[in-house]
Amino acid sequence: MPDGERHEEEGAAAPDVNFWGELPATEAEYYAAHGVEGESSYFTAPGGRRLFTRAWRPRSDGAPPRARALVFMVHGYGNDISWTFQSTAVFLARSGFACFAADLPGHGRSHGLRAFVPDIDSAIADLLAFFRSVRRREEHAGLPCFLFGESMGGAICLLIHLRTPPEEWAGAVLVAPMCKISDRIRPPWPLPQILTFVARFAPTLAIVPTADLIEKSVKVPAKRLIAARNPMRYNGRPRLGTVVELLRATDELGARLGEVTVPFLVVHGSADEVTDPAISRALYDAAASEDKTIKIYDGMLHSLLFGEPDENIERVRADILAWLNERCTPREGSFLTIQD
C-alpha cells in the first residue's frame, strides 16, 4: 500500500495510552475533567485535500457560553493536534477561548504522504479555508480571532498574516517560532545546495540527516518517553522536498520580518537548540507591529508548553493567557514590551 494511503489508515487507530496516562480512559472524560468540550471531524479544502480537525470549547451545562475569542492553532513539523499539543488547547478552552486546529497536510490524520510538505503556500491555503469556515459561523460573529503557532507553526502563522488583510487577526502567539532554521541544525554548506538539486528528481526521499528533535526539545526525561509514544508523530528522517521548502519559506520570512504588523507575543527558551531565540529577537526588533511583546525564558528548551517541568509550563501558560486576555477587548494605545 502506498505510504500516503497507509498514513491515513494508521491515523484511524487509537493509541494504547493517552498522553495524560491511562485515566481518564477516554478523551471525552479527559475534556470533562478540565471543564472543556471537544470534537473532531474532517474538513475538505477547496483543492480536495482532507484535513483532520479538532475544536476545544469551554464546557456548557445548558446554552453554549459565548467564547471570549477564537484561537486558531498550528502545530510544528512532524507533530499533530491529537497528542500533547492538545494540552495547551484544553488550557485555553477552560480559560474561555474557543480553539481550533487542523493537522497539516502530510501530518497526523490529514491527507498526504507523511511529513511531506512540498508547498507551504498550498498548506496555508488549506488552513485558511478551514479557519475562515469556522469564522463564518453565526455563533462566532464579532469575536476577535488570534493565531497561535508552535515552531514551524509559528512561521506558518506569520506567513498567514503576510498573505491576508491586516484586520483579519487580532494578534498572534508565537511559541519558539521557526522564523529561520537554526544554524545548529541547518545542514552545513554545500549540503543545502546538493539537497535542492536532488529534490528536483526525488522530493519524497527521507534521507536528510538531522538531530533527535525530542532529545533536543524536551527537558524532562519522563516527558521524552511520552512524546516518543505519540502514534501519529513522524520519527523518520526529513524528506528532501520538505527540507528544501522549509528553507525557502524561512528564508522568505527572514527577509520580510519588517513587514510584520500584527500584534504578537513571542515566547522562546534561551537554551532552545531547534529554533534560534536570537531570530525571535530579530523579529521583535524588525517588526512594524505597534503592539509586540517578547519573553525569553532562561534555560528553557524548545518544547515550552510540554517538555519543561510543570512549574515552567505554568509560567509560560500564564504569560500567554494574560496577553490574550488583555487583547480580547480592544483598547486604545500601543504596547511595546520586552521581558527576559
Rank of each mutant, 00 (worst) to 15 (best):
R132E: 14
A123T: 11
F131R: 01
A141H: 13
S151L: 04
L113D: 07
R137C: 08
E138L: 06
A115C: 09
A129I: 09
V134K: 14
P144D: 07
A129K: 10
E139G: 03
E150C: 07
I124L: 15
L127V: 09
G149Y: 10
R114M: 04
R135P: 00
E138T: 12
A115F: 07
R136I: 10
S133T: 11
L113Y: 04
G142N: 08
P144V: 03
L128K: 13
D126V: 12
F148P: 01
F130P: 06
L127K: 11
R132A: 06
F146T: 01
R114I: 09
G142P: 08
A129H: 13
S133N: 12
R114L: 05
S122R: 13
L147K: 08
A125D: 15
L127A: 03
I124P: 02
F146P: 00
V117C: 03
D126S: 15
F146E: 01
F146A: 02
F116M: 01
F116T: 01
F116C: 00
R135E: 15
A125M: 05
E150V: 13
V134M: 13
R136Y: 02
V134W: 10
F146S: 02
S122I: 02
R135V: 10
V117F: 02
I124N: 09
I120W: 09
L113Q: 11
S133R: 13
L113E: 14
A125Y: 05
E150F: 14
R136E: 15
F130R: 09
A129R: 10
L113M: 13
L147G: 00
S151M: 04
C145T: 05
F131T: 04
L128A: 10
R114P: 07
C145Q: 04
A125P: 06
A141L: 12
P118D: 14
V134P: 01
R132H: 10
D119V: 04
L128I: 11
F148M: 12
